[in-house]
Design a binder for these strands. Structure first.
Lengths: 115, 115
DNA sequence: TATTATGCATAAGAATTTTATGTATGTTTG
DNA sequence: CAAACATACATAAAATTCTTATGCATAATA
């Protein structure tokens, strides 16, 4: 990723959510999807993406299938069963994180908190 | 911070927002405030906090005033003018980030996006 | 009097990301 | 038709951020 520091730490969650939603995707496709979803605001760099995919695969959360399309190589990734379970956890963490950050940014949204 | 990876990169934004809101705070106070706001979910560790404060000070975004309270030392930090401007930027970035992550997590919220 | 809380700090290591580079094929445009 | 851009993978050095561990010191509490 190349962006606001805030995206640090969210890459694997993003990848796993996209795979949950789309079944299977290849690396370049992920970068393009994220770019379009965020209207160009978030650009995942290859230097971050590929090591992240390899790590998730190594952890048994992703499976890979290599395919040749035309004359070009594609590596399609999809969630394993473990990966699907872990995705649920990570999305729950993400929602908690977002809630906490919203409370920090705009404490008045939550009027019963005292601080 | 000691938590879900997601918080990586958000520490300085959190610090600056709290200082914007509270005028001035000292390190330990910041850790306690964050803990109470997040109901114990986010614990900023000293190993992350103090280097972050020193860095922000070095960048001219924070000023420090040392005070002795009882027999103990406190270092009160507050935003400089540059720091106040930068805080506005970072909070805008945070809002964009949250929006983007929400769109990623729950694309159906935003029905006019096509992907 | 031992533990916990308050209050600061730094250093080694881990983890993640940026930046830079490399290889190769396919498409578009001036 | 050559150059530029897009597609598609990869890795390695450096930077950044955070965790973990440690250290010092005072105050309060059990």
């Amino acid at each position: 990723m190349k962006n606001s520091q805030l995206y640090k730490g969210s890459l694997t969650t993003i990848i796993m959510k996209l795979l949950e939603e789309n079944g299977r995707m290849y690396g370049y496709e992920i970068t393009q999807k994220v770019k379009s979803i965020t209207k160009g605001e978030l650009n995942i760099t290859e230097g971050a993406l590929y090591p992240a995919l390899h790590k998730l695969e190594g952890e048994g959360l992703l499976d890979v299938e290599v395919e040749k399309v035309g004359n070009r190589l594609r590596k399609y990734y999809k969630l394993t069963e473990d990966g699907q379970k872990e995705t649920v956890n990570r999305l729950a963490e993400l929602e908690e994180f977002i809630k906490n950050m919203q409370t920090l940014v705009n404490p008045k949204i939550n009027p019963d908190l005292q601080f």
